[in-house]
Amino acid sequence: MTVGLEHYLVVSALLFCLGLLGVIARRNLLVIYMSLELMLNAANLALAAFSRFNGHLDGQVMVFFITTVAAAEVAVGLALIVALYRKRQTAHVEDLTTMKL
């Protein structure tokens, strides 16, 4: 059976689910953040596969945009985590339950 669009989409879906599992199951803020990256990457893979099998480049442009947004998001998110850590001395989500710093 030759590898087609479905194969890539299944990989992408499983990757997305693994990322989601990380967000739900892990309690470390940084690992949760990495799992978010996994989910973004899963979307990237699906878009690149669509782009390849439909013969449009639009999907690849989207991947490019997502990568850029992800980079910006990581920079801001990590800065937030560091700022939070300075205040509370923890990066554990169960210790970060109050609405106010």
């Binding site: 940084l30 990495m34 990568t67 560091v82």
Partner: peptide
């Protein structure tokens, strides 16, 4: 996988941006 999808530019950007910059930032913060 991107290379197999013939998205060579994206493969390079993927390594350059994610593995080269984003993950180093992660390690730095950790």
């Amino acid at each position: 996988l991107f290379v197999l999808l013939h998205a060579f530019f994206l493969a390079a950007v993927q390594i350059l941006v994610y593995a080269g910059a984003v993950m180093v930032l992660f390690l730095f913060v950790i």
